[in-house]
Every structure is written in structure tokens, then in C-alpha cells.
Simulated assay, not measured.
Amino acid sequence: MGRLDGKNENKRTELMTKVKVSWLADQLKLPLIGSDLHIERVRPLTALAEGSLSFASSPLLAGTTPYQVAVIGPAEAAADHITVLVSDTPRLHFALALQLLSRQVGFREETEEARIHPSVKVGKNTFIGRGAVIGENTVIGHHVVIEDGVSIGRNCWIKSGAVIGEEGFGFERDLDGIPMHMPHLGSVRVEDDVQIGSLSTVCRGTLQDTVIERYAKIDDHVHVGHNCRIAEGAMLTAGTILGGGSVIGRYAWLGLNASTLQKVTIGDHAYIGMGAVVIQNVGAHQKLFGNPARVISK
């Protein structure tokens, strides 16, 4: 049956076959600095492994790994163990690289059947993808979509109509300003004792997982963007929208129809009022209301 502890390995960032970085540089028409290593996977800078391809805007960020890796970014990022595909628009060229690798090489896909504990209750017309893991005593409602590779822990309640693990809204404009799709290769990890409400969406991460930690509660009609992390015991009430990469602290509260700009961090035990629009980081225990949201008290 495999593991049923709510944890799962994401295979989709691994290439089907290795490719030389010189081939990729030729395809993207980018100058190459460094050794002609083999690329085996794509990873963010925060989770590099041997043979990774990533991107960076800052040479300081790119120069912090001991692994032999390739980075799309500034020439100054080159080092003994870092090969650089030189680009003034690294995110754009990384998106192009993902599309190219997806078409011509391919990323590994989930091939195993879903691993569902016998105690799990599943409603009617629910889809559970390959490689998904669902822990004991979890309840899955009707018409739920759980995509490939999603892991859900013990004692969770996924209400009817929820969609977990579909791709998020990720685009990068090309040099002509045309939106270009950024493939999302991560997944979603839901820990124990989590509730996800009806008609809510939790998007999978771009390269790493979107994470919902234990005891977090998500109301109906909530949208969680790609790469978000919702910490232990946080509560998101109906209509909440989280921009991609947002981090919600432990036991924070987001009121009805609150929303966050992408990559905003909300501190532990913070309180975000009804309809608030959060456009900057929020400290622990702060209370914010309004549009744009302003600190009222702590």
C-alpha cells in the first residue's frame, strides 16, 4: 500500500532523461559560462540538489549551494560548481526552459495508484489522482477533485466540490508582452486534522508543494494560490483569497472576503478583518482592517 502518513515524494520535477546544459543554452540562445553538466531536475534556489536547473536574479542567491547546478541568471553567479545560462530576464527564460523540457524531454509522472487508508470515506463522483495519499479517518465529500501526487493526512475533512492540486494562475509575459504559461510541477501537502470547505481551491506549487499545516481550517469558497503555506491552526473564512506564495502564520485569522497580495507574510496570531486587502507583511498579533489594510491594534 505504501506510505499513508500524509507525505509523498513529488516526481514531476525530475526529467525523464538527463540533458546537457549546452543543449538547453543552444535552444534558448543564451551564452553559457561554466562546465557542461547534465540537468536531471528543476528546483527552486531554496531546495537545490545535484544536477538541478533553477533561476536567480541575484548572484548572491545563486552562489549559496555546494551542488553542481545550472542557473539561469546574471553572469556574476558563475562559480566552480555553478554553470550559468546568462540572461537579463531569468524568470522568462526559466519559463521557456520549462516549456521546452516539458515538450522535448518530459517530466516524470505519477504512475502508482492512489494510496487510501481503508477507513477513508469518499463521496460520490469524486476523482482521486495517481500517487495521491490519504490518511486514516479522513472524509472526502462529493464531487471533489484531488489531483495526482496530492497528500492528505489523518482526520481531515474535504467538503464537497473542493479542488486540490490543479495548476495555479502562473504566467510570465514574453518580450512582446504576451502572457506565457509557467508550468506548475509541485503538488499540495495537507497535514493532519485539516478542513477544506466546499468549492474551495488549493493550487499546487510551481516547483515545491503548497502546504497546509495541521489543524488549519479553510472555509467554503476560499482560494489558496500556488506556493502558499498555511501554518498550524490558521483559519481562513469564506471568500478569502491568497495570492501565490503567501504565508499565513500559526493561529492567524482571516475574515470574510479578505485577500492578500502575492508573497505576503502574515504573522502568528494576526487578525485580518472582513474585506481587508493585505498588500504588505503583517507582524505577529497585529489586527488589520480596510483597503488597503491598516494596523488598528496589537
Rank of each mutant, 00 (worst) to 15 (best):
G168K: 11
I158K: 09
R12N: 10
V139A: 14
V145M: 14
I72T: 01
N8A: 11
D220M: 11
T64A: 12
R294G: 00
V211G: 00
M274A: 05
E167F: 11
A78N: 05
V277A: 06
I266Y: 11
G249F: 12
L199M: 11
G131K: 03
H143C: 06
S57M: 15
E112D: 13
A216Q: 02
D209G: 00
V278T: 02
K29Q: 13
G73Y: 08
A77C: 10
G239Q: 05
V163K: 05
V188A: 04
T83A: 13
A252L: 08
G34L: 00
L100M: 13
G186F: 12
A75I: 11
R189Q: 10
G233Y: 11
L242P: 02
V190I: 15
S102F: 02
Y251R: 09
S52L: 07
G290N: 10
T65F: 06
T240W: 13
T138P: 01
Q27M: 15
S151G: 04
T260D: 09
K287I: 14
I82D: 08
N291F: 14
I196Q: 02
V145I: 09
G135A: 10
W157R: 05
G225K: 04
S58K: 07
L45I: 14
V277E: 03
P118A: 06
R130N: 07
N125G: 03
A216V: 06
G34A: 05
G141H: 06
L256S: 04
A276F: 14
L61C: 01
E166Y: 12
F55T: 01
Q286K: 12
W157K: 04
G170R: 07
I72G: 01
A77V: 04
A97D: 03
A132L: 13
G34I: 00
I146K: 01
E110I: 07
V282G: 11
E109P: 00
S54C: 09
D5R: 03
E166K: 08
A258F: 10
K159M: 15
V122T: 08
V222Q: 10
V122C: 05
C203I: 01
L24S: 08
E213Y: 08
K121R: 13
G243K: 08
E166C: 14
G2I: 15
G225E: 11
E136F: 04
G177N: 09
S57G: 14
V133C: 10
V194T: 06
E232H: 13
K263Q: 09
H38D: 15
H184W: 07
D268P: 00
A252H: 06
V190Y: 12
H93D: 13
T201H: 10
I128H: 04
D193P: 00
A77D: 06
R115W: 15
V222Y: 15
L30K: 03
L15H: 02
A252Q: 07
E213N: 02
G225C: 10
